[in-house]
Design a protein around this nucleic acid. Structure first.
Lengths: 247, 247
DNA sequence: CAGGCCTCTTGATTCATATCAATCGATACA
DNA sequence: TGTATCGATTGATATGAATCAAGAGGCCTG
């Protein structure tokens, strides 16, 4: 039996300011000094809470704000005209959601909380004004958006070039490095999302995801008990993720 | 026999300025008034020419500039560690290439000319400064980058949810609307890219692309002679592109 | 004008993964 | 406490597109 004491994220004793937020070195404040940070503080709508499954915004929602994840996790997806969902990203604490919507007056995607999640809401009109007086923030915004493009291209590569095993290895490693970034264990963590979401994101059937997990387990690459995941052989996973196309 | 007089794009009698460029209503100047445009003019490196197959930049190139396509066409791709290419986008006149690289000091992708192509080079450090004094341009840059994220997400949807036929229909329609935007015929145009590139971009084998083209032709949806394409039934293509998943 | 080299097309076979079907376990529910 | 519901797993079968193989049509080059 594993300890089943749920290690809930304490909502960080933030005095409702970026300065005191434990994520300030990951999130937007990363690019700012203290005085600049307080400018940002003024426009941020702190601590909006969403329960698992609740929608942060939808494709029909007018676009007013971006959201920084504070705790929990969010998935974004596009719902096609024929009604099915394609998950386009998972967002963890310190990451910014909604950057794909800045080219329109309504959101380009739907964002849902994967678990109980708290976010900081950042109104875009105020963000744009702020960016205008804080060159560092502007640069950082370009950086973030560019990163987002790159991630998405990377996803395209995964979807069109890689096998089921390679895709799943890549996802596990991506999650791992994001946990590491937050100074959490990169080898033992809880998946914030269901198998279903993984399958959808990676363009696979749930059954395939399940099979690959058990295969990985039999090969001694991981240990998986539901959402509790342990990566036992990072190197092997890295090799796997890269794909070995040419002989 | 079709007229084989090649309708080469005249390099627009641009007096080397955005004001006189025929693309000013599509490209960056879109967001600017005349005085602002001349500021942009000062930083743009005009009329760099690349022949078919030549590289505009590569993944190892230090990132200094974005490029606006003036005539011709460009493909961008990511080369994976295992050495194979995944095309991430096609860029036509009036479109901006290189936005995925603003988060790093080297390019995130490789850009190659698909045919003889002229581009305007825009040094990023100067662009960032300019953006800082021209709020309209800043807004537009956010818009463009956001659009790029959206496009890429759209590609992911295509790759993971749609059949070969649906993907190809979608690509043809995307090209069509981009020709329309430039006031060219949306139903009769020359593909700037080879079948190979289409296949790669859409995550298919060349043979599959070829087969789908002939199938479409037999169904009376298109007429295809090599790169010369005529869309005969836009509506049917639209229906096809959306995919009919649920019964 | 012939030869060589691409690009594109067409046909036959194979394979990875989807789909269909059933069971199991856990959590929620009343 | 039993029952309904949902998520995950496992097995059997079907299939869309890849791969393998070969030929056809252009286009350049010597």
């Amino acid at each position: 039996m594993t300890q089943s004491i749920s290690v809930r994220q304490q909502p960080a004793i933030s005095k409702a300011s970026c300065q005191h937020c434990s994520l300030s070195n990951l999130c937007l404040p990363l690019a700012l000094d203290n005085s600049e940070m307080s400018r940002l503080d003024e426009v941020v709508n702190r601590d909006r809470i969403f329960n698992r499954g609740e929608q942060v915004f939808g494709q029909s929602t007018p676009f007013r704000s971006c959201f920084a994840v504070k705790s929990g996790a969010i998935k974004t997806s596009m719902i096609t005209e024929s009604g099915d969902e394609q998950i386009t990203g998972f967002f963890m604490p310190g990451e910014l959601v909604g950057l794909d919507s800045m080219s329109d007056d309504h959101h380009a995607s739907t964002a849902k909380a994967l678990e109980r999640t708290s976010v900081c809401e950042i109104p875009v009109d105020q963000l744009e004004q702020l960016v205008h007086v804080l060159p560092g923030l502007q640069h950082h915004m370009f950086h973030l958006m560019s990163q987002e493009i790159r991630n998405s291209h990377q996803l395209s590569v995964l979807l069109s070039k890689n096998t089921a095993e390679e895709r799943i290895a890549a996802l596990l490693l991506s999650l791992s490095s994001r946990f590491r970034r937050r100074k959490l264990s990169p080898t033992h963590f809880n998946l914030p999302m269901a198998r279903n979401d993984i399958a959808n994101f990676l363009g696979l059937a749930v059954e395939t995801v399940s099979r690959v997990f058990t295969r990985f387990q039999n090969q001694g690459l991981i240990r998986a008990r539901g959402r509790d995941i342990e990566l036992l052989d990072l190197e092997a996973l890295q090799v796997m993720a890269q794909g070995t196309s040419q002989p």
